[in-house]
Amino acid sequence: MSEIGTLAAVQRAGADALTQVGAGVHTRVFFSAGEASGDAYAAELASRIGEARPDVDLEGVGGQLSQGAGVHLVASSQDWGAVGIIESLKVVPQVWQGYRAAVAHLRRGRPGLFVPIDYGYLNIKLCRQARALGWRVVYFIPPGSWRRTKQGADLPGLTDAIITPFSWSATMLQEMGANAHWFGHPLRQMLKQVDAPAVRSGIAVLPGSRHHEIEHNLKAIAPALKGLNVPIRLAPAPNVTSDEVAQAWVRAGGGECEVVRPARAA
């Protein structure tokens, strides 16, 4: 399958699905993104679907980027990111509260298009609820899509379509009976939209989007960069404040640096 543009493909798929669920009748698109990366994808998708169908209501679970793209948030996933059992257990109450809010919202009004993005712990459960309520489900970046040995066994029965960033994932899902598609990785398209300087210098430090991993990563990165006579620039994720990253850098023993971020995430 050729790489024609993941975001453009979702834009078209979303418009087609919306036509089928009822054009012009209080049509809804509900996104569900549990982490910073998913929030960035949701923002791009919301912008593109909104361009194709300006009459839709954009709703969902996400962070400040999707909210800035016009998505009405029923729950904020700003601090849901976690790695490891202990850290994951800490966010369970927040995620559970968000799940209940999302289900309550899905039950209101006319069903539309449900777009879960990765974050299988929450989104597989929401897929089941959405399907039972009559929503069409287009899973964008299914959980575990990077694996070359297996894909989620329950995905074919829970989705109307799946858009995955990896060709092998699409092939495996198709063999399982899913309506799966690969159009390339969305990050490649998103990077083309960034105005990067022609000449680059220094070292960019991207410590992560999960609060606990920022602390751990910078404790390893800061000592490794000591003594290098080059500019160091810290780039916080959209869900993390500049002050949080700067303070973590200082605690890690880091030297002089500049904190930079895209204008829309400032």
Score class of each variant (00 low, 15 high):
V25I: 01
S76E: 15
S76F: 07
I86C: 02
T19E: 03
P54D: 09
P54V: 09
E35M: 07
Q97M: 05
S32L: 09
G98I: 15
P93F: 00
E51L: 10
A104E: 12
E87L: 09
I49R: 02
V71D: 04
K90R: 15
V92A: 06
L45S: 08
Q67K: 13
G62M: 06
G98Q: 10
V95A: 02
G62Q: 08
S66K: 15
D16A: 03
S37R: 13
F31M: 00
V61A: 00
V61F: 00
L65R: 14
Q78G: 05
V83K: 12
V21A: 01
I85R: 11
F30C: 00
D16F: 03
Y41P: 01
F30A: 00
A17Y: 09
V83C: 03
G38T: 14
G84S: 05
E59F: 07
D39Q: 06
A52P: 14
Q97V: 12
A13G: 02
L89H: 15
D79H: 06
V103H: 01
L7D: 13
G22T: 11
S37A: 11
L89S: 13
L45Y: 02
R48H: 02
A23F: 01
V56T: 14
A69T: 15
L73N: 04
Q11R: 11
Q78C: 04
W80S: 09
G70I: 06
V29Q: 04
A43D: 06
V25Y: 00
G81D: 12
G38L: 01
G5T: 13
L7V: 13
P93H: 08
A43V: 11
Q94H: 13
R28S: 00
G14S: 12
V95E: 01
V91T: 14
A8K: 15
D16K: 10
W80Q: 09
L45N: 04
A13N: 01
Q67F: 03
K90S: 11
G63M: 10
Y41Q: 10
E51G: 05
V56H: 11
L58G: 07
R48T: 02
D79L: 02
V91H: 04
G24H: 04
V103C: 01
A46H: 09
R12I: 08
P54H: 06
Q78E: 10
E59M: 04
G60S: 07
W80T: 14
G62P: 13
E51Q: 14
Y99C: 05
S77N: 03
K90Q: 14
A17V: 15
Q67C: 05
Y99V: 12
G70D: 03
G70W: 07
D79R: 12
V83L: 06
V56F: 08
G81P: 08
